[in-house]
Design a protein around this nucleic acid. Structure first.
Length: 206
DNA sequence: TTGAGGATTCTC
DNA sequence: AGAATCCTCAAA
């Protein structure tokens, strides 16, 4: 694997609506060699965002979200899937960016082994639950530091810039603040979740 | 102590 | 369209 340096703390110390599009085309990397390019993200913004887990203040579940920027916040979704977020902003705000889809780029053998039932590679990590399963992320990694790489999870830049004009739209799967345009993805990318990714895989225009 | 409601995914 | 599955949190 190439030598990569994790993104600095300062990268995360901004509002999630700035951090989220900046994370597109960065790489999520595990110490065992698994790595994937981030192609879809959503911002969640604490007390200003009714859809955020952190909207009503800190709880046991969301403690990591209210901590230092650059740490991994992992939550259980629908009782069976894990969701992975990068905490951002000042301590105490409860801001974060949900990682929704990856294009696997390294450690494909391990990633496929973690997702034995899939038919196509585009289903390996195209969705927050799939992404976490593909990368071996569970609540056990909640609070891991993506900057110091203390527990074998980090986010790096391999020199690829974020898309100049990302696709922006409403977030997926929420029932509050449904109109906030706080989801971003790489245009025309086959590994984006849902209809957009499938359309891109067929050669659609976006 | 209770129960409604999930930042989803898979199969029919 | 419906099931799977269980933690979280506010208290109708």
């Amino acid at each position: 694997m190439p030598e990569w340096t994790p993104l600095p703390r300062s990268f995360y110390q901004r509002h999630p609506t700035e951090v989220a599009p900046a994370l597109l085309n960065k790489l999520l990397v595990r110490a065992d060699g698994r790595a994937g390019r981030i192609v879809e993200v959503e911002a969640y913004a604490g007390s200003e965002d009714p859809a955020a887990h952190s909207y009503r203040g800190q709880t046991a579940r969301t403690a990591t979200m209210f901590g230092e920027a650059g740490h991994l916040y992992v939550y259980l979704s629908y009782g069976m899937h894990w969701g992975s977020n990068a905490v951002c902003g000042p301590v105490g705000e409860g801001w974060g960016v949900l990682l929704r889809a990856l294009e696997p780029v390294h450690g494909l053998d391990r990633i496929r082994a973690a997702r034995p039932a899939i038919r196509h590679d585009r289903e390996l990590a195209s969705g927050p639950g799939r992404l976490s399963q593909a990368m071996g992320i569970t609540r056990a990694l909640d609070g891991a530091d993506l900057v110091s790489n203390d527990r074998g999870v980090c986010i790096v830049c391999d020199g690829t810039a974020p898309p100049a004009v990302p696709v922006v739209g409403p977030r997926i799967g929420i029932s509050k603040a449904v109109a906030f345009p706080w989801r971003w993805h790489v245009p025309g990318h086959a590994h984006v979740s849902g209809r957009a990714g499938a359309s891109a895989a067929r050669g659609g225009s976006g």
